[in-house]
């Protein structure tokens, strides 16, 4: 079923909206949450919470990219759960945040003002200017939290090459954050 048809079901308050969502995106959502939490049970609960959140947010919203819309919801819910437990082993969200710490300028302090919207606007601009390959790899790793091995497999690349692209992209992001005095 096409995304717009599933969204129509939400707007019509049809319960089959949830089953169609699960059919099309269930595995992807589970995968995002599992990557962050390393727990099948927690991931399953987050997926169910995501369906509930989608049900509640529509009909007010009519997402064009339903997969992206749901991915953002489950990412947010999973990160909240990650923070609540903090018992996640390395390789989940902890490992990804540690990688991202390489982007943080050395003089960053918690007191630095995280100006509303400035950082996300800069991130969108940064990503838009990257070439497609780098952008896809970066987003798969730091938005979807996919394992590097999975990215390499899907993109037909070696693991080392993916790591290298990520490392160079993190360095480029760090330079942007320093230039614009963000973080």
């Amino acid at each position: 079923m096409e995304d717009y048809q599933i969204v129509d079901l939400y707007w019509a308050r049809s319960e089959s909206a949830i089953s169609e969502t699960e059919r099309k995106y269930g595995r992807m959502l589970n995968s995002i949450s599992f990557s962050l939490l390393s727990s099948a049970e927690d991931a399953e609960e987050c997926v169910n919470d995501t369906y509930m959140a989608a049900w509640q947010s529509m009909p007010e919203e009519r997402p064009v990219y339903l997969g992206a819309f749901l991915s953002k919801i489950i990412r947010r819910i999973s990160i909240s759960r990650f923070r609540a437990s903090r018992t996640i082993k390395r390789g989940g969200a902890e490992g990804i945040i540690e990688e991202l710490s390489e982007c943080i300028p050395s003089d960053s302090t918690v007191e630095s003002e995280y100006e509303n919207g400035r950082l996300s606007e800069a991130l969108n601009r940064f990503l838009a200017e990257l070439d497609e390959k780098k952008r896809v790899i970066f987003v798969r790793r730091y938005f979807y939290s996919q394992p590097i091995e999975r990215i390499a497999l899907d993109c037909g690349m070696k693991v080392g090459s993916v790591k290298s692209v990520l490392s160079r992209t993190r360095q480029a992001l760090k330079e942007l954050l320093e230039e614009e005095e963000l973080l």
Partner: peptide, 25 residues
Amino acid sequence: DRMKAAEYLFDELGLISDSIVAEAM
């Protein structure tokens, strides 16, 4: 502080545009 800032950056990456998120998959 560095890890807190990294975590904030991780959060903000959840706000990138839907088209970029969709493209990656």
